[in-house]
Every structure is written in C-alpha cells, then in structure tokens.
Amino acid sequence: MGDVLVFAEYFGEHFPKTTLVAVNAGLELAKKRGGSCLAVVAGADVGALASELAKFGVSKVIALEHPALKDYLADAYAIAISALVKKLGSEYLLATATAVGKDLMPRLAARLDAPMASDIVAINDDNTLVRPMYAGNALATIEMEGLIKVVTVRATAFDAAQPSGSVAPVEKVPAELDDGALKMQFVAFNQTKSDRPQLTEARIVVSGGRGLRSGENFKTVLEPLVDELGAAMGASRAAVDAGFVPNDLQVGQTGKVVAPELYIAVGISGAIQHLAGMKDSKTIVAINKDPDAPIFSVADFGLVADLFKAVPETVEELKKLKHS
C-alpha cells in the first residue's frame, strides 16, 4: 500500500524538467502515504534513459519496452502501463499534466477503473489532495476512493527532483501488448523551431497579447525583448485566437501554466483565464496603455505606456545595464 508509480515522459534522449517535477511529487506522495516511489520509462529501447532516471531518488526504474511503444500513442501506452500498474500493485499512478500526461492519464484511469485528480498543486498528510478549479479561482480539497488512484501534478507547484547521490536498480520489462489490437497510428510531429527556452522551463517569460496587433509585431517588437532577456516567449489566448502566434505559446487556464522568476506581460489586458496561467510567477511586470487593465492588479511593477514605444526603450535600457 502507498506505492507510487511515476510515468516518466522524455523528449529524444533527455528528461524535461516537467518529468523531474513528477518524480519529486511522486517521492512526496509516497513518503506521505507510507510507500515507495517507482518510475516507468516506456518506449522501444529505453535502457539508457531508465539508467539516467535511476539517479533521482526513486527506489526502482522500470524500462517498459515494446516496438509498438516507439512513438507515444494513447492506446498502446494505456494497455502497457495499466498492465504494469496491476503487476506492481501500485496505489497511485502519477504524471505531470503535460500534453502527454493529460492525454494518457484519464485513459489509464478508465482502464484501471480508478478515480483521477487532474493538475494537483498540493499533497496533504490526511489522504487529501488540492487542485485548482474555475481557472484557479477556487482551490478544491479532494479525496479519492479506490485501490488505485490516478493523479496529474501541476508542473509549477512542485520543485524538480535532484540527483540523490545513489543509483536505483533498473528492471527491463517487456510490455504485454498485442500489436493487432492497436488502432491509432502516428503520422508526423511538426516541431516548432525555436532556439529559445521552453515556456514551462524558462526563468523569464515575456508574453504578448492582442495589444501587439499582428504576428509581424510579435517578431519586430516583442522578440528583441524576449531575446535580450534570454526568455521564453508566451502569448495570451486573444493573441492565439487572432492567429498572431501558434497555440503552444498560449499561457492560461486552457494553455500552459507557468511560474517563472520574472513574467512580463506586454499588451495583455489580463482576462481571468490568462491570470490563471501566470499569477504564481515570482515577479510580474505589466506594460499596457490602459491604466484600468486587470493585469495591473496582479503586477508587481506596472508601466502604463504605449508598448510600441515602451518595449524598444526597455530593450535599450537592458543593453545599457548589460554594458554598465
């Protein structure tokens, strides 16, 4: 009882910060429920990845392998991982609420006949968990009932696991999978090309809103500020809706939730759904010409100004600071 199995997502040959966050949350949950924390890396050939993950404090890493697990697909992964959960007798199955985590975990919950809590932000000692609802305007304390429970964690609510100094054993397990039963087929992944840091991993995020007026202005006005700061670029839903930038830049209730050390909102009014995605940032800056914009109510520093003037000036000031 109390054992936690962490689903460890990877990109290419490395684990993103979001996976180390899942490991850390898994360790905390296992400790509070009196069990062990194990992790599973699934794929066609994941021995090296599993060995890497074994350094982060879990008690065992399972390398779950099958040729059909080469590309992530919900149906194959759900079959393979649910079988593993049953074999291990885990009480909790946990992942971070990334695109893959959100896609896979509910399918697994249904397959395991387990209740599921999405996007948790805290683990209490008394068997309860805390998760946001209504775009973060309410925090729900929840309780789940069942031999198996499924959880996704909000990436910004937990720290990343650190190397523990010891290495856990790695066990290779061939996945129990019948290729013939699988209906989903991977066709292509069209990666957004960017040299900038990932939105969910960046120390500084600069986001633009409808105030930028065009995709072209994102490039010519906002990007110099983003790059001067070595920041990740984000956007409001309004800017995504207007087609200025791709959806994977969207920060908000229905996009990405970020909590960097510095968040700069440019030309963003601050709709409820946007605030839900960034209000836990350490320092928030708002640049907007409307002094009544709701974004100012959460900003540590507000600059009421025309962004087309203020943003280039800020870039100049940053350059001066760098050279001083």
Binding site: A99, K183, Q185, V187, F189, N190, T192, Q198, D248
Partner: peptide, 13 residues
C-alpha cells in the same frame, strides 16, 4: 493535435 513543442498528426479508423 496541439502538443508540447509543436503539432502532432495521428490517424485512425
């Protein structure tokens, strides 16, 4: 599909 880091295409019956 809108996934982390880009767009993914899948096919199924």
């Amino acid at each position: 599909r809108e996934v982390d880091g880009g767009l993914e295409t899948i096919a199924f019956p």
